[in-house]
Design a protein around this nucleic acid. Structure first.
Lengths: 106, 106
DNA sequence: CAGCATCCTTATAGATACTG
DNA sequence: CAGTATCTATAAGGATGCTG
């Protein structure tokens, strides 16, 4: 007998929230530390300002990332994972582990 | 499609291979059993024939899914996970678990 | 420093009709 | 049953210039 996994919607939901070209990378770096905007720009090769802004806003809107603005000149904005965001760590690590294995096997 | 040779980030690579709107669902159902084309059509609400074909071809090209054609009339084609595809199960389960938790918390 | 606005290109997805 | 072939619509991503 096939072991039917319950409901498919959760998997799709998760991929909706962390999928796309850049969100995995962003989460990966936020997993280990709080980061500033330009710091993420440096860490993630080839991402544009527009895309980084957009992805961070998406993650913020979904309650995964917290955006802390320090009212000072020059501006300082720090991004970190929310409590919900932190629960993503096992997922990100599972993805990382599998991706690493896949790349090695090439 | 995935540009693996260009970027070697494991997390991004994994998301390239299993991301998108439908691949998660397809992998989810193939995790539990071998499936036929129309079976997947029934299991995955709203997917079109064109998209299912395309996603299966992508997964096949990346060595994640195996396509077995039975030369008979009417045609019979079975899709299953390869050995590599099976190593994705922990990832799919992690995604499912998190997505479920997320949906509950809404 | 950390962005927003505008314009543009490419990728992804859907509708419909048809076939071995 | 398991697909192709077109055509169209929308979403994702990129280039560039400007700003509080």
């Amino acid at each position: 007998m096939p072991k039917i996994l319950k409901d498919a919607c959760p998997t799709e939901t998760a991929l909706d929230l962390i999928g796309g070209k850049w969100k995995g990378m962003i989460l990966f770096y936020l997993c280990s530390d709080t980061r500033r905007f330009n710091e993420l720009m440096r860490l993630i090769p080839d991402i544009t300002q527009r895309m980084l802004t957009k992805q961070l806003r998406d993650l913020e809107a979904n309650g995964i990332v917290h955006r802390e603005v320090y009212p000072q000149v020059p501006p300082k904005v720090e991004y970190s994972l929310t409590d919900l965001g932190n629960t993503l760590e096992p997922v990100v690590r599972a993805l990382e582990k599998w991706g690493d294995r896949y790349l090695r096997a090439l």
